[in-house]
Design a protein around this nucleic acid. Structure first.
Lengths: 335, 335
DNA sequence: AACATTTGTTAGATCGATCTAACAAGGAGG
DNA sequence: CCTCCTTGTTAGATCGATCTAACAAATGTT
C-alpha cells in the first residue's frame, strides 16, 4: 500500500549545481519567459546532468492545483465503457491531465471508496458513471468540496450537474419500431435493473413504440436481469419457457443480446430466424457477431469525449451554468 | 491543465477544533494505537463535523511514499488489454493502490510522455506493456530512479526486469499444429509487426509446427500488418490475391482474425469453409463471432493479475531477484 | 544627472501533511 | 522519596516545490 523511495534529485540540488537560487530553477522548470537564455541553459544542463525529475505532486500541493482527474466507470471489460474511457482519455490527455481510473462493478460501496480515494488524491475533477442507486449525499460530498463533477451515461434526478448521455427513450423506441415494422406483435424486453434511470428511459421508449403502433405490452414479457452477458443468458430462459413466447426480443444492451444469443442456441433456437433480436449500444463486437446484430448506436466514445470536454470547461470555470448533452441515437440495421 | 482549488479543511484546523495538536490529529488520521480512546473520538468528531478530507498527496510527499501505481497499455478498446487492465486493477486496488492509466497506441513518443508524467506524479511503481521498439534508455530511466517496474506481454531482450507473458512460441505452434492436423498444407501467417518480440516468438512456433510435420513454410505467405482489426482486413487482401493462395490462416491475434473474417466476406469467400482461420488471445468476442473462432487462449486477465502481484512484491522489496512468469497457452477449439 | 521603469533573480514563508525527539503525567519498584 | 518505565501528546523541522515581495542591474525618460 505504500512505498519507501530513495531521495530524488530536487530543484534545490539543481539550483546549487547551476549556481542559482531555487526560485530561479523553479522558474526554468516552469518555462517562465522571465529567465534569461544564459541562466535557462545553465539550469537545463544541470537538470539533465543530475537526472532531475519534476515533482508535480509537490508543485501541485504548493500551488493548490491539480493535474489529475478521476474517471469512474462500471466495468472496463465491457466495451461500452472501455470505448467511453477511450474517449475521455484521449480528450483529457490532450489537455495535459493524467487519469485515475476506478471501476465500480455497479457496487455502491466500491463507488463510495473510489470517490474517497480520488478526493484524497486531490483530483482536479471527476467523471462519474454513477451506479444504479447512487445517493444524493455521495455526489453532494464532491460538490461541497468544490470539485468539478460531470455525470455520464446515467443521470441523477433533480441534481444540478453537467451530464452527457443519450436519448435512451428515443433509442428504445426506434429499436422496437423496427421490430414492429418487420411484423412482430409480441416483443420481449430483456435485461437491466429497474432501479436505474437508463432502464426506465428504455422501457418508456418500449411502451411508446407499442402505443404508436396500437399494440399493447404484455408485462410478463419484461424480464430484468444483471446487465452482463451472463445476465442475458440467464434471463432469456424466462422467455424460452414463457407459455406464450414472443417472436422478438429487444435487449437492454448488446451485452445482454450476446448473452441471449448464447442462451437461445443452447436451447436449440436459432437467433435471427426463430427469434428476432435487437441490441443497444453498438459495441464493436456487433460487427463480427452472428447473426449480425441490429442495434441502437449509443456513441460511447462520443459520450466520453463530450464528458471530458464538459469537465475541462468546468475546471476552467466552476461557476458557469451546468450543461446537459443528450446525444441522438441511431439504429444500425444488420440483416 | 491545472485547477485552482478552494482551501481544504486541514489537519491543523481539525486539531484546533478538537483542542489537540497537529501531530495528534495526524496520528488519529493514521489510526495510531498510541492515541487514547477519548482524544481519538474527540478528533474524529471534529473531522466529520468540519468535513475533513485526508490529503494523501501531502502525506505522501512528507513521508516519501506513494499510494499510486501506473499501468501503461497499448489500447483500452482492445479487449485483450482491457481484460489485462481489469486483472491489474482488481489486484492492486485490493492492496490500496490507486491506478494511473496510460495508453500508448503503440507509439514510442506517447510511451515516453506517459512514463515521464507518471514519474512526475510520484507513482510507486509501473506496469508497462512496452511498445514494439522500446529503447533500453526508456526503461533504464525508470530503473535509475529506483521505481519498481514490471513488464507485461512484451519482453525486452537482455534486460533484467520482472516480466509476465505467455509462451507465444508454443501457442503459435499449437495453433498451426491444429490446422495441419485438419489437413492443411499451405498456411498463411497474418498480422503483427516484425519488430516486436511477440511476433518473433509466434513466427518461431509457426515454423516449428511446419518442421515437425515435415512441411516447408512459404515466406510469401507471411503477411505483416498493424495489429488492429483494420490491419487484418487490409492484410488479408494480400492473401486473397496471392497467385497460389493458402487454405488456412493463422492470425497474430483475434483482432486480426476478426478483421480477416470481414475482409474475406467482402471478397466473397466464406471464412471457416473456404478458408480456415485460427486466432490468438481468446478475447471474449470469440464466443459470439461467426464462424466461431478457434483460438489460442493467452489469459490476459491472468497476465494482469500476475503482473500486479509481481509489482506489489517488488514495491515491498526492490532488492529481490527478478522473476519471469511465462503462462502456458491453451487452444480453444470451436468448430 | 536624476529618477522611473523594466528585467532578471532571490530570500523567506508556505502548501498540508509526517517525522523526530523531547516532554509531562502516572504507575511500579526499590 | 527518588528513579525508571510506560503511555500519550506535542513543538519544530521537514518533504519538494511555489508564491510573495523585495532587490540589484540595466534600460529608458525627462
Amino acid at each position: 500500500m505504500s512505498t519507501k523511495k530513495r531521495h530524488r534529485v530536487t530543484l534545490m540540488q539543481v539550483a546549487e549545481h547551476a549556481g542559482v537560487s531555487r526560485a530561479t530553477a523553479s522558474l526554468v522548470a516552469r518555462k517562465s519567459p522571465k529567465i534569461s537564455k544564459d541562466t535557462r541553459e545553465k539550469v537545463l544542463a544541470s537538470m539533465s546532468e543530475l537526472g532531475y525529475v519534476y515533482d508535480r505532486v509537490a508543485a501541485n500541493l504548493r500551488s493548490q492545483t491539480s493535474t489529475t482527474i478521476g474517471i469512474i466507470i462500471t466495468d472496463v471489460a465491457n466495451t461500452f465503457y472501455s470505448e467511453l474511457l477511450l474517449g475521455v482519455h484521449e480528450e483529457l490527455e490532450r489537455h495535459g491531465y493524467t487519469v485515475f481510473l476506478g471501476t465500480t462493478f455497479d457496487s455502491v460501496d466500491n463507488q463510495e471508496r473510489l470517490i474517497s480515494t480520488m478526493l484524497e488524491h486531490r483530483v482536479g475533477g471527476i467523471i462519474l458513471c454513477p451506479v444504479s442507486s447512487t445517493s444524493t449525499e455521495t455526489v453532494n460530498r464532491i460538490k461541497t468540496l468544490d470539485i468539478p463533477l460531470v455525470l455520464a451515461v446515467r443521470e441523477l434526478p433533480n441534481l444540478d450537474f453537467d451530464y452527457v448521455g443519450l436519448d435512451y427513450t428515443q433509442g428504445a423506441q426506434m429499436g422496437v419500431e423496427y421490430l414492429i415494422k418487420k411484423g412482430h406483435k409480441r416483443i420481449a424486453f430483456l435485461g437491466g435493473r429497474p432501479q436505474s434511470s437508463t432502464w426506465h428511459q428504455r422501457i418508456k421508449g418500449f411502451y411508446q413504440a407499442h402505443e404508436i403502433a396500437g399494440l399493447t405490452v404484455d408485462p410478463s414479457l419484461i424480464i430484468d436481469s444483471p446487465p452482463t452477458r451472463e445476465g442475458g443468458t440467464e434471463g432469456v430462459k424466462n422467455i424460452i419457457q414463457h407459455p406464450n413466447p414472443p417472436t422478438a426480443i429487444f435487449c437492454f444492451s448488446d451485452l445482454i443480446a450476446f448473452g441471449a444469443i448464447i442462451g437461445l442456441r443452447k436451447a436449440g433456437i436459432t437467433p435471427g430466424e426463430e427469434m428476432d433480436i435487437v441490441g443497444f449500444d453498438n459495441v464493436p463486437e456487433t460487427e463480427i457477431s452472428y447473426p449480425p446484430l441490429t442495434t441502437i448506436s449509443s456513441f460511447s466514445k462520443q459520450t466520453g469525449m463530450q464528458a471530458a470536454k464538459l469537465l475541462h470547461e468546468r475546471i476552467k470555470d466552476n461557476q458557469k451554468e451546468t450543461q446537459k448533452i443528450i446525444l441522438k441515437p441511431e439504429i444500425v440495421i444488420r440483416d
